[in-house]
Nucleic acid binder design. Structure first.
Lengths: 230, 230
DNA sequence: TGGCAAATTATGTCTACACTTATTTTTCGA
DNA sequence: TCGAAAAATAAGTGTAGACATAATTTGCCA
């Protein structure tokens, strides 16, 4: 092994050994020092390669325990969650936006639960439609923490809440969920599809360290597909 | 800054500066050497912290160009794609499996496209049901490359193809897509739901460097939700 | 003025070493 | 024999320095 053997080369070789079964599932692989000797490089370089594989779920590493190939690898798929406008423009389609409603209202129970707050709280409820090539693309049904995004101070008439938030609000975490739902009368009307049509929906909760900022359900018009590479 | 300031501490501090707008979107942040001086640590430690943030989409880094805060951050959500059995057992539910069909057949055009092969090819078509607590959970409709997974050599009567493949076949890449679809008569019957019900489906293509190994569509019974943290 | 080449610069990567921390294994005493 | 303390081990992290690489900027020449 005369070539400088970058960490990527080591990663590739390690991947090959996993794939060919040379390093079999459940088995412990040589420790970093041994591999460093084999590839005649520094241990840190081996560490970089193995850490990278571990981040992708292809290896499991524990102090002292050593590094092993998981018996049942849990593959990880990373999705890029872009602003809806970017998503549409990325398809070379014309983006459109229309605010439907923006008012304070009492949220349903499941939304309230996401805000982990007392009952009788009033949240800012924003409804809007995103268009691609003039046709309804995505229905945005959003609940905002009015203490963070105040009525009157910020309007979503031309810039969507989706975009405004990404640009202006700090976040620290949250969760996202995908599911399928049947179009109810309201959604069907807005998305111009048949009632009962199967729609793809994303629900997302965004928090900062102190409070929940927003909960949103994005319901996509029929035919939407979310893709990622493995 | 007397504490050794681990790379995670630097990451956290950098995150804070992004969130508070101290490092504003689009602006270039101090280079690694400067930050290393500020935190009185080695440049490699700063590098580790900033690289970590860049991997999460919170910073953009380019050689020479320096590091900057993206104006429209593209959040990344990582989903763990587990074996279906693990998914169900992880919910403390009883897993069940039944093979429905396993035969060589001519695939439809859209499947053929994933295999990037000539027409008139015959693939191995496996259909199976996964159960949770005795109720249909997920319908597996899979096309396999018969040169890789040969009829007769491997049977999926008790161990699902889903699981067998994860354990036995090397992969190098592929793609995954999520969408919603309406239950057709066949799916409705197998999943014991109403025809036309909105179902969540995952389509996955898995390749090795040489050929496509398998294409699978997993159609989940109504109510399924796929979740991830942000 | 236009364009190509060279200098500059910030990140990317590697090395060799040291020290830390989590965990297992061993040892030894009750 | 059990259990707690000690030793051993493998990964995790940090440092200082060096060189590599990509991209921008500068400067020169036509």
């Amino acid at each position: 092994m005369k070539r400088p053997a970058s960490w990527q080369a080591i990663r590739t070789e390690a991947l090959r050994r996993i794939h060919t079964g040379l390093w079999s599932p459940g088995a412990r692989i040589p420790d970093e020092a041994e591999l460093a000797a084999e590839f005649s490089c520094a241990r840190a370089t081996v560490n970089r390669a193995l850490r990278s594989l571990a981040e992708d779920g292809l290896l499991e590493r524990r102090r002292k325990g050593g590094t092993r190939v998981p018996t049942t690898p849990v593959r990880k798929a990373t999705f890029e969650i872009a602003i809806i406008r970017q998503d549409i423009e990325g398809r070379s389609q014309e983006y459109g936006y229309r605010l439907i409603d923006d008012r304070l209202a009492a949220p349903p129970a499941e939304v309230l639960a996401e805000f982990e707050t007392s009952r009788d709280v009033v949240l800012r409820h924003v409804t809007a439609l995103h268009f691609a090539e003039g046709r309804p693309f995505c229905l945005e049904d959003r609940w905002l923490n009015p203490q963070i995004v105040k009525m009157g101070e910020v309007e979503f008439g031309t810039l969507s809440a989706n975009e405004w938030l990404v640009r202006n609000i700090a976040y620290s975490g949250g969760k996202i969920g995908f599911h399928a739902l049947a179009a109810d009368r309201d959604a069907a009307g807005k998305l111009e599809c048949a009632e009962g049509a199967a729609l793809f929906a994303i629900e997302r909760t965004t928090r900062n360290p102190t409070a929940t900022i927003t909960f949103v359900r994005l319901t996509y018009a029929p035919g939407y597909r979310m893709e990622a590479k493995l």
